[in-house]
């Protein structure tokens, strides 16, 4: 990993909900401009780890977070930082797409306006560009002002992706983005993520091993809140070190 730059590094990260630990002593490095897959059995803390990167956990109650999360060389857990500025660097795509309660156009324009100015012409160009990036432009160009909720789930997921890149983040956090989609829509998203890793660091939580094998450059394997194995995809998949990883790969645990 010495070749590529590190986008996110955690040091001794611990997270607990209502005093029960969910993540224990996480020490990982996530390479920049690559696709990192976070895998592991259900309930092992994948979503929690993902949401700790953009400090999204703290909008919930009774969450305790300790340790360091270093992004661009700075610890984002330092108190007194402007949290929206941290979040703006990381787009989030969740399992179930949640478009904003606005039109298709406004969904993408939202992030542009709050971070990059309200000039109508610029906003319009930006919306066009982002929708084009996710391959949605041709499908929606005649109904930009329809409610976003009228799109299909797969389209909504791509809209969420467009909305996220409109903010111009460095990282795109994806939490099982394809699990609610049909195979074709899922494939579209997968291809998009592969395309986007040229410009963004992509972190993908997935529960399908096959998806991870298809797309991941780097893999983090979580097991009961601990990182049991992490490394280059080739190495983790073909030459696993830990018995848990071996068992997971062979389908004994899932």
């Amino acid at each position: 990993m010495s070749k590529s730059a590190i986008q996110i590094e955690t040091r001794g990260l611990n997270v607990s909900f209502h005093n029960s630990p969910v993540l224990k002593d996480i020490n990982i490095e996530i390479p920049a401009k690559q696709l990192t897959a976070i895998i592991g059995p259900s309930g092992c803390g994948k979503t929690t780890l993902l949401k700790s990167f953009n400090r999204l956990l703290e909008i919930q109650e009774d969450v305790k977070i300790s340790g360091e999360i270093i992004v661009d060389g700075k610890d984002i857990m330092t108190s007194g930082l402007n949290v929206p500025d941290i979040r703006k660097k990381m787009g989030l795509i969740s399992q179930k797409p949640y478009p904003l309660p606005m039109s298709i156009f406004e969904n993408v324009a939202y992030g542009l306006r709050i971070h990059h100015g309200k000039n109508p012409k610029k906003v319009e160009e930006g919306v066009h560009h982002c929708l084009q990036e996710v391959g949605l432009w041709n499908e929606v160009k005649d109904r930009l002002h329809d409610p976003a909720s009228r799109l299909s789930v797969g389209q909504q997921q791509r809209l969420c992706l467009a909305r996220a890149i409109a903010v111009k983040p460095e990282v795109i956090l994806c939490d099982e983005p394809t699990s609610a989609l049909d195979p074709i829509a899922a494939q579209q998203i997968e291809r998009l993520l592969l395309k986007l890793k040229k410009d963004f660091t992509v972190i993908l939580v997935t529960h399908t091993l096959r998806q991870a094998k298809r797309v991941a450059d780097y893999v983090i394997f979580l097991y009961f809140g601990m990182v049991v194995e992490h490394g280059l995809a080739d190495q983790v998949f073909n030459d696993p070190k830990s018995p848990e990883m071996k068992a997971y790969l062979s389908g004994e645990i899932s």
Binding site: I59, P84, D85, L92, Y98, P99, L100, P101, G111, I114
Partner: peptide
Amino acid sequence: PHGLKESAYSLGSTRFE
């Protein structure tokens, strides 16, 4: 929905926005 608020916060919105 909590997920909707998460979406808004992830876009870098403040609580007020």
